[in-house]
């Protein structure tokens, strides 16, 4: 069994390296910034504005993603149709596109001089330099995280449960709402958490497409970047808040999903 033992050692070492590498920068933020500085930086109205704006815009973006993404993911997971693979690839494309490129693409598509620029303006919508533009950038960049995960969650449902619902006379809409969504909830929540986290950290697409102005388009990551050059401590403190918020989102969702799984097991 010595052969097995050395392989285990390799696995443990690999996980150890990965964990140190992934957690060290986050730990360093909290080591570098004392609790006093953390609190005083939160007294900076600019920082609070940025955090509030980040919460608002990510919440709106996440709502849009859930409303559009859930049925879209259901379709991708349950039907086979021509062009399905292409559709899945297109949905995943923003995952691999650099954020700054996403920003340029959005400008070229719906910016004032873009493809649909006149249509957007005629509809009375203003995106560039506006909070609405931040929401568009966040939605673009974050939605694939949710749709992918939701599609996987729907795909993993026990087909017999869905079948049973249909044979008992429930329409597809009812089956989707009453059976599929509740049963896939842990996966959907995990996808929502990923999308939220991605949106909360979004930087490049927001800066390029929406710009950076305190209280209007300057989200927390943009505020961090602005402080980086002038006031490193303030940048660290704001980073710490963002890390804490992201951790809370991740833990909250894991707990919710865990509790649900336990609850199901008991039922």
């Amino acid at each position: 069994m010595t052969g097995g033992r050395w392989f285990t050692a390799v696995l443990v070492a690999a996980l150890g390296v990965a964990m140190v590498f992934l957690t060290l920068p986050l730990v360093a933020i909290f080591v570098d910034v004392g609790p006093g500085e953390l609190i005083s930086s939160l007294g900076d109205p600019g920082a609070l504005d940025a955090l509030r704006l980040s919460l608002e815009t990510t919440a709106i973006a996440l709502t849009l993603i859930l409303v559009i993404g859930t049925p879209a993911a259901w379709l991708l997971a349950t039907r086979s149709f021509r062009g399905r693979s292409l559709a899945i690839t297109l949905v995943e494309l923003p995952l691999v596109v650099p954020p700054a490129v996403a920003g340029i693409g959005l400008l070229a598509a719906v910016g004032p001089g873009g493809l649909l620029g006149e249509t957007v303006a005629a509809a009375g919508l203003e995106l560039v330099f506006q909070t609405a533009g931040v929401v568009v950038a966040l939605t673009f960049v974050a939605s694939p995280f949710y749709i992918r995960q939701a599609q996987a969650a729907f795909g993993a449902l026990d087909p017999s449960v869905i079948e049973a619902s249909r044979t008992l006379g429930a329409g597809e809409a009812r089956t989707f709402a009453r059976i599929a969504v509740p049963n896939a909830l842990p996966g959907l929540l995990a996808g929502a958490a990923l999308a939220w986290g991605r949106a909360l950290g979004e930087f490049g697409a927001t800066l390029v497409f929406a710009g950076s102005l305190g209280g209007v388009t300057q989200t927390a990551p943009l505020a961090i970047y602005e402080r980086l050059s002038g006031d490193f401590t303030a940048a660290l403190a704001l980073s710490a808040v963002l890390v804490a918020a992201s951790t809370a989102i991740l833990l909250g969702v894991k707990l919710a999903a865990g509790a649900r799984v336990v609850g199901d097991a008991r039922a």
């Binding site: 920068p25 986050l26 930087f203 992201s246």
Partner: peptide
């Protein structure tokens, strides 16, 4: 957390 890592870097 995953998004904060690049920021920290």
């Amino acid at each position: 957390m995953r998004i904060a890592a690049p920021l920290a870097a």
